[in-house]
């Protein structure tokens, strides 16, 4: 095949359902032979935070934020019907019963498929997220120009 088609998306949301949609499309695009870049910004960074251990950030406000907004693929909530976690628990149960992959498994798949996952550097700066806040296999932090350079070469771009 000639040069690979590109697919680039921004995941702005940290909701479980929206993250799922993003990973479904990203992994499918990769399986269709496309070169995929996922750019994680703001609440979307919660999706790729590692699940274990505390996240060390500087300053009282950022420390507080990263306790209240801990994130990590196992802590994501549904955008609707979370119902204090019960709705999310039920959705995860339904997904498991349907043999559907979890976000964690989708992240692993994305890594195996060489999907680039870039955390937004500005969001990381403001929210106080060091490089080691993220799960292994995530790219180094990148900015808007990186995203736009990828996006302008992509036939398909999405903002989720």
């Amino acid at each position: 095949m000639a040069e690979k088609e590109k697919f680039t998306l921004v995941l702005f949301s940290g909701d479980l359902d929206k993250a799922l949609a993003a990973f479904i499309l990203a992994t499918t695009a990769a399986s269709m032979g496309m070169e995929v870049t996922m750019f994680f910004t703001f609440w979307g960074l919660n999706v790729i935070k590692r699940n274990e251990g505390p996240i060390k950030s500087k300053g009282i406000m950022r420390k507080m934020l990263n306790v209240l907004n801990r994130g990590g693929s196992s802590r994501l909530k549904l955008s609707k019907f979370n119902m204090l976690g019960m709705g999310t628990w039920m959705m995860k149960k339904l997904m498991k019963e349907s043999k559907y992959p979890s976000i964690d498994e989708f992240i692993e798949m994305a890594k195996e498929m060489d999907i680039k996952m870039a955390p937004c550097s500005t969001s990381c700066g403001i929210l106080g997220l060091p490089d080691d806040a993220f799960t292994d296999g995530v790219m180094s932090q990148a900015g808007a120009a990186f995203f736009l350079a990828q996006a302008r070469e992509s036939k398909t771009t999405l903002f989720i």
Binding site: I24, T27, T28, S31, M32, S98, K99, Y100, P101, M109
Partner: peptide, 14 residues
């Protein structure tokens, strides 16, 4: 069998 989109496609690609 029993797998939902996009798993059959991803497994096919593999």
């Amino acid at each position: 069998f029993g797998l939902m989109c996009p798993m059959p496609i991803i497994k096919t690609a593999q």
